[in-house]
Design a protein around this nucleic acid. Structure first.
Lengths: 220, 220
DNA sequence: GTCTATACAAGGATAGAC
DNA sequence: GTCTATCCTTGTATAGAC
């Protein structure tokens, strides 16, 4: 890994865990094991560094989502892949960065803060949302053509509903460390799917869920 | 309004719209029309100011939620009040603060950033989530007793589902300025209710929704 | 490409007059 | 209770040697 890449990875980690303003170039330099001014050889400013971080992460995320949904065929599986992919990406960011750390990460917080501060980033983030909205639209339309998804749903509204559920989950899991996200997300996805699906609710009821396996934190 | 209150309100507004780190005491002083050192007569530090802002907003929010759900009787209405109350509180914060401004606000972002930075605030925010979880639990249990809500749902999981949907919506509406939240939230609430409700889906289908009235942003 | 040294600005905070 | 003046620290950024 080149120095430039190291700087980028460390910055991303710090921006994500401590926030942009609260991260200083000294902290970055220390963790990369270089001196502060060396950063300026690779990046022209701290802002520049943030921009590159956002581009890096969004490009990767978009790519992974696109890849994950083409791996599945059945609309239900494709939607599940979409759902899982974003949650996984967020949960596994520390290992993705090749800089394992155990601090909780919240992509949404990072995107929102960046979009709110820099209009250039706001545009890029908007683009991301447009892109994932298209993915969802495709899946929904295909599901409707195959009579798996209700015709009565309003597509655009459903898209917002799906995205907001995913983002809400990420936000919540960031605050509630005691929630074992892995054990509940499958069920939450099933709930989502059954609200879209044409399947008879009776058959859904037959699949009895073993709630004893759902290891919610004691807080609840 | 006393000077102390003014400082608190202006700070809250700036923290919410620009972020804590990006807000300086000079900015606050300017907007209150006092000099920077005067702030220190009322608050011992910038951190102190943030803490008071969080307490103020959470106390208010909790009070409003508690009030709104006791105003309704039917579990469906109570849940609707809960849903509406949090969204309204977020949307109307600018007027609540008696300092009208048009910048978008995202309470969740503010809470998460604060909780991530200061453990004392993290505790208070946790308390808030526990409290609203209790409210929801009451409503759900009551709904089940009256046979309005399915017995098959998993209460704790449903609570997370509901909270994350609301928080996700706030997050999304912060990024997508072109979404007309007011026109879609009713429908999103109906979706939520029908996923919990014992009502026959057929009767739900009969209520045809006039989608032409749902003024989604052109972005979608 | 990385370093030392340093400039420059701005932020939080205090002292003490009025 | 509010002000002026000022301190101190830290942050971003640059100049220029190696």
């Amino acid at each position: 890994m080149t120095t430039k890449d190291k700087i980028l990875m460390v910055s991303l980690k710090l921006f994500l865990t401590q926030g942009y303003d609260n991260t200083t170039l000294s902290m970055i330099a220390d963790e990369v094991n270089i001196k502060k001014p060396s950063i300026y050889y690779h990046f022209k400013s701290k802002e520049d560094l943030l921009f590159d971080c956002i581009y890096l992460i969004l490009n990767n995320l978009e790519e992974q989502i696109a890849h994950s949904i083409t791996n599945s065929v059945h609309p239900k599986d494709r939607l599940a892949s979409f759902f899982e992919c974003i949650l996984d990406f967020n949960a596994n960011l520390s290992t993705i960065l090749e800089y394992d750390f155990d601090a909780p990460v919240n992509l949404i917080l990072f995107f929102q803060m960046s979009a709110n501060r820099f209009s250039e980033l706001s545009d890029r983030i908007d683009e991301y949302y447009k892109k994932i909205s298209c993915f969802l639209k495709e899946i929904i339309v295909e599901g409707q053509q195959k009579c798996l998804i209700k015709d009565t749903i309003h597509t655009d509204l459903t898209i917002i509903d799906i995205i907001s559920r995913i983002e809400g989950l990420i936000a919540i899991s960031f605050v509630y460390k005691s929630i074992d996200m892995n054990s509940i997300r499958k069920q939450l996805y099933e709930n989502l799917w059954s609200s879209l699906s044409n399947e008879n609710n009776l058959s859904a009821k037959k699949k009895l869920i073993d709630y004893s396996k759902i290891g919610l934190g004691r807080k609840w």
